[in-house]
Each structure stands twice: as C-alpha cells, then as structure tokens.
Write a protein that binds this DNA or RNA. Structure first.
Length: 571
RNA sequence: GCGCCCAUGGCUCAGCUGGAUAGAGCGUCGGACUACGAAUCCGAAGGUCGAAGGUUCGAAUCCUUCUGGGCGUACCA
C-alpha cells in the first residue's frame, strides 16, 4: 500500500537554502532594474546560482547577466553592473559581490550568515533533506520482477537496491510511493520450471531419463524435487506427467518466490505489493483490454495473430499480442498490467529494468499512450549488468547452467551495508564492477567505511564531550560568529546543499548522487576535524563546534538512511 | 544492416542537465598521532575528456560523421 509523506508541508516549504536566498536577491534586483530603466523589460530566464570550483570566484556565482545578454543587446559585464547596483541585501548576508570573467556575478557570504543556515537542520532533525516537491502525487516503482524460476543473482540485486532507493528518495521528496514486484508466474517458462522439477523427480525415483537441455539445470531444481519426493513419495510417479507438472510448477514457484523474498529482505528490500501475472488472466483483464484496444483500432488481426500497432507511436515494428496458436504474449499481459497500474490511481509509474530489456521501451511507451496516458507518465530506469569479481578476477556465471552467485551469497559474504553502498556508487546506466574482496574489506579501499567512520567519529566526539561535562547544544545555544574558519564555512555549505541533492536525485531518478554527496561531506568533515579541535577549554567555541558536528551527523545519518545503509555510532 | 547505451589521469568512476584553470577514490612518491577515533588528514606527480567537424560569448556536456566496446533487434520473458 502506498503510504503518504510523514512530514509537515508547511515547515518544509519555508526552508530556504543559500542558493534560494541569492536567487531571490537577483530576481528582485533585476525587477528593480526594470523599474529604474537600467535594463529593458524582458522575460527573465530561470536564474541559476552555482557553486564555483575556484575559491577566488566566491562562495556562489550566477551567470544570469550572460543569460540576459542577447535580449538586452548589451555586454554581459555591463548588465551585471546594473544588477549588482540594484541588489538590496537587507538581510545582510553578503560580504561583497564581484563581477568577473565574461560576466559572472560572484557572491562572497558574510561569515555570520553561514551558521544561521544550520537552524533548520536542527529544527528538522531526521526530516532534514525531505521536501514537498512531489506534492503527494502517487508514484509506483516497479522493480526486480524476476521470474520465480530460480534464485536471484547479482544483477537482480543491483536493480533491487536501485529501485528500493529511488522509491525511498521519491518518498522523501514528497511523493506517495509504492514499491511493487511483478511476478511473471504465467507463461511457458513456468511450465518449463514444472517439467524441470518433474524430470529431476523421476531421476530421484530411479527412472532412467535424459534431462532435457531446455530445462533449468541448477542444483536448486534437484533440491525441490527431493522435497517433493520426501513429502509425497511416489504419488507423481503414478499420476502421470499431465497431473504432475502443474503441481510441480506451483510447488516450485511458491517455494522459489519465498526464497526470493527472504533474499531481498536480507538486502533490506521490502515490497509493498507482489503482483501476480496470473491474477490478470484469472480476472480476464488481458482479454478485456485486448478487446478494447481492438475496438479502438490499436490492435488488428493478420493471418490469425493479433498485432499491436506500436508503430503509430514510433516503435520500429508492430508487436504481437496474441500468437497464432491463441496464446497471449508477455507483452499482452504487460498491457493489462500497466492499465491496472493507472487504474489504481498512480500518476506516474517507474519501471526499473535490466539494460538488456531496453528494446522493450518503445513498445511500452506506445502502450501507455494507447491507454490514453502521456509518454512521461512512464519512466524506465535501465540498470546495467554487474561484473562480479573476486580480487580483480571475474567470477564465471552462467544462468542456464545454474552456476551463479546468488544475492544471498553476496550479502552473507560482504554484508548488507557494503553490498548496498557498492550497488549505489555508480550511475545505474553504466556497468558496475563489483569486487567481493573490496566490498568486504574492512579497510580504506572500501568506500562505505569512509562515510560510516565519519559518523562514528562524530558520535565518539560527542560522547567524549558529554563525559567532560559539556551539553550537546541546540541552535539557540550557540554564538554564530564563532564558526568563522574556512573549514567550518565549507562544512556548513555542504550541509546546506543536502536538500537540493535529494531533490535533484529524485528529479533525475539518480540515486548515485547521494553516495557521492555523503562522500564529499565526510571528506569536508574529516578535514575540519584534522584542523580544528572540537572540545577545548573555550566553552563557547566548544558549544558552537559541537553544534556543527551534531548537524553534520544528522545529515550523514539522513543520507545513509535514504540508502538503507546503517550509520553506526561505533565501529 | 538498424536501434539504444558506453568511451574522461595507470585502474575504477564523478562532472550539478551549456559555464571560469576538468575532479574524486585506488595505485605511486613525500609528510602528519605524548591532542576529541590514523578505517583519518596534508602535499606531489599524472588527462589534447576515443577522433574529426559544427552550433555560440563559452562544449567533457548539444548536433553530424567516424573508430572501438556492450546490449538489443522473436508469434522468449
């Protein structure tokens, strides 16, 4: 079931980070130029404020003068001058403003303005980083959706974690999100599963059979056959194949699915709903939608088969929905399934697929449009395959031969935190090298520890401070001016960026931005730590710095929570 | 053949949807613990952003062509 956001919209909408404050200053300044006549009245392009790489370019910079140049027909630097003259810094956050290069406006922030940004971190606590961007709109994220014909392998694991975290990030961004697993439990591969178990069963019962090549080869098939034998004895020897195979199919699918659920749980992935393909057939959903689309001329008959006119929507060729023998294709069920999703009220649906399914996208987009939705109502996130390595050497895998490393084996070996973090570190659209030795290394080679260590270190300092009789301060307790060192400003600036990172990540459906962000945050924190002593004889300064690291800890914790990775207090 | 994805220091990868002198980590070299956790920090070396054109004030980013890799091109899922 979809659950709504748990935060208060009003609090979050009031939040303004430094970029937003500067954007507003610029906007007002430009309007003021219009009324003064120093600029021609034109449409204002969206104002971008960015973090310059170079410290000499200020704390923040905007290219708005360059953006306005063509409309104003004046050199960008002149435009920048007019804008800067009109800036009204009544809140006194600016130390100085410079015009540089081709027309950048560079902002230098007043020292005391920095610490004020931490007020909201303290006020929001666990909720810092959440936003109301989604306005409660309903999104479904469908992922994994592997056939219950065998255990999940490492590629599924990556998709599972990425889907899970996308869902989490969207939820934190104010969407109402539901995680769903589509079980492909209809179709002929399920029959093959049943046959596979059946033949192994025959083998175990002493029959001489040649196990078909087309059947699933894995050892787990024999395990299932053994379970059947132990429970039911020779029942299915007598019953004949026609009666035995459907039973084997159900038995195996049920058992494998349970295993899949358990494995996902060890990875920290839990679904709101498992949706069975069989349900669609049982309720005649497939035939109904085919009939409807046929009446609407999206589906036509040719030589005894039914075709979906996906070319109407830009697909390369039309696609079969019902075969010549009367069997519907996987695509047919998928049409019914996606219709069902929209009928359940999802404003937008996101499918996380293995990259080898990319050829399927055009027909699915055609499908949603034929169903009367916009193309944008369906997003497909492609997850590239995983190369599993051990100490730099590829681990051979062949699904057909049943030789693969399962999710369970990976999580058992490297642990949930390391597994998840490693899956999330790369853009989902690029190949991932997953090295078991690095992932389980308790060393600096393993990136997850870098971040967790920062958190543990913060907790340790705070424990230490409390032991020495210090109080852990809240915002009102500290003197903002004391946080004056460049390292402190850097740290605050990073903290201030977090909500924007989450929003961007949600908007782009790119979870990897979060690990990169926390890594940077941890790095800035470690630098600060090495340069400055938090707990000292100077009580006021100690309070201010304790507050700073407390805020840092909140952000690391919130970010790790989004990733489903723990934030240990000791390690 | 056609379509999609990828190409950035020795290796693995970021690059905020077009911004200023392209960044991390690992590896290499050199430094920092009688101080709150050295799983850390500081510094150095290392790149013509696969190639060639084009778009404009400005390109790793957008367009075209080419090269090299992955995947897909079923009445399989």
């Amino acid at each position: 079931m979809a659950s709504g956001p748990t935060f208060s919209f009003s609090i979050l909408q009031r939040r303004a980070d430094m970029k937003k404050k500067l954007t507003e200053l610029l906007e007002k300044a430009i309007y003021s130029c219009f009324t003064q006549g120093t600029l021609h009245e034109t449409v204002i392009p969206s104002i971008e404020v960015e973090l310059p790489r170079e410290g000499a370019h200020g704390d923040y910079a905007s290219n708005i003068a360059m953006m306005l140049a063509s409309g104003q027909r004046r050199p960008p630097r002149k435009i920048a001058e007019s804008i800067v003259e009109s800036i009204d810094d009544s809140a006194k956050i600016l130390d100085k403003v410079e015009i540089a290069g081709p027309g950048f406006i560079n902002f230098f922030i007043k020292g005391s303005a920095w610490a004020a940004l931490l007020k909201e971190v303290d006020a929001l606590g666990d909720k810092y980083g959440q936003s109301a961007m989604g306005m409660g709109s309903k999104i479904q994220v469908e992922f994994v959706s592997a056939n219950p014909t065998g255990p999940l392998h490492i590629g599924h694991a990556r998709g599972a974690v990425i889907g899970d975290v996308i869902a989490g990030i969207l939820r934190a961004s104010g969407f109402s999100v539901s995680r769903e697993y589509y079980i492909n439990d209809a179709g002929n591969q399920m029959n093959t599963l049943g046959e596979s178990v059946y033949y192994r069963y025959l083998g175990l019962m002493g029959e001489t059979i040649s196990f078909p090549e087309t059947c699933y080869q894995g050892a787990y098939i024999t395990d299932l056959a053994r379970e059947v034998r132990d429970t039911y004895g020779d029942t299915f020897l007598k019953s004949g194949k026609e009666a035995a195979v459907p039973f084997m199919t159900d038995y195996a699918a049920g058992s494998i699915l349970e295993g899949i659920k358990e494995d996902l749980e060890t990875l920290g992935v839990v679904f709101d709903r498992y949706f069975s393909e069989k349900e669609l057939y049982r309720d005649n959903k497939v035939s109904k939608i085919i009939e409807k689309l046929r009446n609407e001329r999206f589906i036509y008959e040719e030589e005894g088969t039914l075709w979906f006119k996906t070319t109407d929507f830009g697909d390369e060729k039309d696609r079969v929905v019902v075969r010549g023998n009367g069997d519907p294709t996987y695509f047919a069920a998928d049409i019914a399934y996606h219709l069902n999703k929209y009928e359940r009220g999802f404003d937008r649906i996101i499918n996380v697929w293995g990259a080898d399914h990319h050829g399927y996208i055009p027909r699915m987009q055609a499908c949603v449009q034929a169903l009367g939705r916009k193309k944008e109502d369906l997003d497909v996130v492609l997850v590239q395959l995983v190369n599993l390595l051990r100490g730099g050497v590829p681990v051979p895998m062949s699904t057909r031969a049943g030789e693969f490393v399962t999710i369970r084996e990976v999580t058992d070996e490297v642990g949930r935190d390391a597994a998840r973090y490693n899956f999330l570190m790369r853009r989902s659209n690029s190949h991932l090298d997953f090295d078991l030795e690095i992932a389980k290394a308790q060393s600096n080679e393993n990136p997850v520890y870098y971040v967790q260590y920062a958190h543990a270190r913060i907790c340790s300092i705070m424990r230490n401070a409390v032991e020495q009789g210090h109080r852990i301060p809240v915002y009102g307790d500290i003197s903002l001016d004391l946080l004056a060192a460049p390292e402190e400003h850097e740290l605050i600036k990073m903290i201030d960026t977090f909500p924007e990172i989450v929003e961007g990540s949600a908007q782009a459906l790119e979870p990897h931005r979060i690990p990169y962000y926390i890594n940077d945050l941890a790095s800035v924190f470690h630098s600060f730590y090495n340069k400055h002593k938090v707990v000292s004889d100077n009580i006021a300064l100690t309070q201010a710095r304790l507050f700073l690291i407390k805020s840092t800890g909140i952000v690391i914790r919130n970010a790790l929570r989004l990733l489903g990775v723990s934030a240990p207090e000791r390690m």
